[in-house]
Simulated assay, not measured.
Amino acid sequence: MTESTESTANATITCEKFLPHAPAAVWKALTDPDLHARWWAAGDVRPVVGHRFTLDMGNFGQQPCEVTAVDDERLLAYRFAEGTLDTTLTWTLHPEGEGTRLVLTHAGFDLDSPLGRQAYEGMDHGWPHVLDRLADALR
């Protein structure tokens, strides 16, 4: 499920997916660089507040990031594409039965900027596919 909210200067994408895996397994996929590279992008992601890393976004280049919040197996947030897109990704894990409901919130798109609008429109359609790849990587 994807939900989008817009205001002129700040748009947010929210996407969620139920994964039939324990929060520990989902957390590892979000925070282990080798697993992360399998479903989204290569980069030295680590669940440590203040940790700076880059994500290799292929044609979109190396995107600088900084971890801003961590609650083990519950929440990981980081600034994404600092200096260009300047958005924030927040991954929230909710235990549900024997699985996990993963909620992604991608916030801070500047719709007044051509880059911000293009990224918002592309990622609004792209995030569900990325979460499908995450589900595949966990299998």
Rank of each mutant, 00 (worst) to 15 (best):
L35I: 12
L89V: 10
T87I: 04
A11M: 12
L76T: 01
T87C: 00
D71T: 11
K28V: 01
H106A: 02
G83E: 07
D112N: 12
C15V: 13
R52C: 00
D132Y: 07
G116M: 04
L104I: 10
L85E: 09
G50H: 03
A29Q: 00
H129Q: 13
G116R: 09
V70F: 03
G43W: 14
R46Y: 14
A41N: 11
T105D: 04
L19Q: 00
R139D: 15
G83V: 08
R74V: 01
I13M: 06
W91P: 06
A77H: 00
A37C: 07
L111F: 02
H51Y: 08
D44G: 04
V26D: 03
S113K: 08
L76V: 01
A9V: 15
G126T: 09
I13E: 05
R52M: 02
G122S: 15
A69V: 02
G108T: 04
G122E: 12
C15H: 09
E121R: 14
T68N: 01
L102I: 02
A42L: 09
F80H: 11
H36I: 03
H125R: 14
R133E: 13
V103L: 11
D136V: 10
K17R: 15
H94A: 13
A119W: 08
V49H: 04
P95R: 03
P20H: 13
E66R: 10
C15Q: 09
H21M: 05
